[in-house]
């Protein structure tokens, strides 16, 4: 009788733990989604600003071409290629920014300030996203999550490569 009770208790605890783990993983996936949505939004805004800069009087034809190309690549890249494409845009912007700041008029200057504010936010957003992806991947490595397939059919989150992408 006593041992039967113990077994019931154990099963119950185990079920609770499974539920707890599933909730935990669900929450982590949710965190990855939101941190990605946030980062994606910021990157889209940056690409839009890059295009606007390319069309402004600031850019000479060559840099305009370079920027437009990099911005479109960043926008259209599939998720696995995204960080590479965004790095390309970062370096294109980095090359042009110093020159642009020297000759900017007020209207264009506000564009450049917006860009530099955005850059700070993007760095924070990348750090947040990388962290949430890493913790999710670490948790999904654990045995209990694999045996009971607690992740279901959710894809393993993709790491974002350029942790130290500085502009």
């Amino acid at each position: 009788m006593k041992s039967a009770l113990l077994v019931v208790l154990f099963v119950f605890l185990f079920l609770w733990y499974l539920n707890f783990s599933a909730t935990r993983l669900d929450r982590l996936h949710h965190r990855v989604e939101t941190s990605w949505a946030n980062l994606d939004g910021l990157l889209q805004r940056r690409a839009a600003i890059a295009l606007e800069l390319a069309r402004s009087e600031l850019a000479d034809p060559a840099s305009s071409l370079l920027l437009t190309d990099a911005a479109y690549q960043a926008r259209e890249a599939p998720i696995a290629m995204r960080s590479q494409a965004e790095s390309g845009l970062s370096s294109a912007l980095r090359h042009l920014r110093v020159d642009m700041e020297a000759v900017a008029k007020p209207a264009e200057r506000s564009l450049l300030t917006e860009l530099s504010e955005l850059t700070g936010k993007i760095q924070v957003a990348i750090a947040l996203h990388v962290d949430s992806v890493n913790s999710t991947r670490v948790v999904r490595q654990k045995l209990i999550f694999k045996i009971f397939r607690l992740a279901g059919r959710a894809p393993l989150p993709v790491t974002y490569e350029f942790e130290d992408d500085v502009l």
Partner: peptide, 19 residues
């Protein structure tokens, strides 16, 4: 505050956890 903004993307406020 900019970290606050990022933490709030796509979320609708704080509530008690399901557990």
């Amino acid at each position: 505050f900019s970290v606050y903004e990022m933490a709030m993307v796509g979320r609708d406020g704080v509530h008690l956890a399901s557990e």
